[in-house]
Amino acid sequence: MATQGPIGEDDLQAYIDERLAPARRAMVEGFLHDNPDLKAEIDKQRDDRDALRSQLAAKFVEPIPARLRIDNLRAAQAARRAARMRSLAASIAMIGIGLAGGWVIRGEVAPQRQIEAASFVASAVDAHKTYVVEVAHPVEVAANDEAHLVKWLSNRSGRVLQPPPNLTPFGYSLVGGRVLPGGNTAAAQLMYEDAAGARLTVYLRAGGDEETAFTFTEWEGVSTFVWIDGGFQFAIAAELDRDRLLPIATRVYERLA
């Protein structure tokens, strides 16, 4: 909105919003004075803006309901997280004891390990749920920049990571990836999307010396396979049933190892 130059669309909008500097505003007023039809239209649009403001004004001063109080929201969130962690830690501990037989860590499964595994799954699922619904910024680094992401993560972890696997045989193409905090290290999330917009994520972070088999968890509608391989912990998460996710997880396992 320069002080000079011809009057443009942006001047008219800024005039309606009362955001013009006085000198420019005078120019716009002069211009509108010479164009009465346009002035009539702009004045009406200005009235619409004012009407909208005044009609929504009451909403702004309404008392805030208790359910929107931040302290209440945080307490509810903490309670949910604790309940989730408890049930997940319990189920993984049970698997570790051998009831389900899926958790085949070499050597003894220490309680510390179980908690780490539970928190890894929780992080992967949280990250999945957070970003699959994201419309504007689902990823930080787009698919065409994947080499950069892989290199960055490899540097951070001191281990060489393979490029994101191609999942087009399953109908999923790579959207991109992002870096996330992952406990005391950094984690990465790769996101894939199918033609219908359904998304799956691969979550990985450096850690774990042993190798494990796949462990399947289903949690709030999100299916997850986790495994440890080659110095990385992996999780693949999607709103798919176990049988459909397994071949995809197998492909990721083969390509990323």
Binding site: L52, L56, K59, F60, E62, L68
Partner: peptide
Amino acid sequence: MSKRLEAEIPALRRYAFGL
């Protein structure tokens, strides 16, 4: 954090109602 978020609630409610 709570205070900063809470200060924005009236505006968020107004925008949400408009939507």
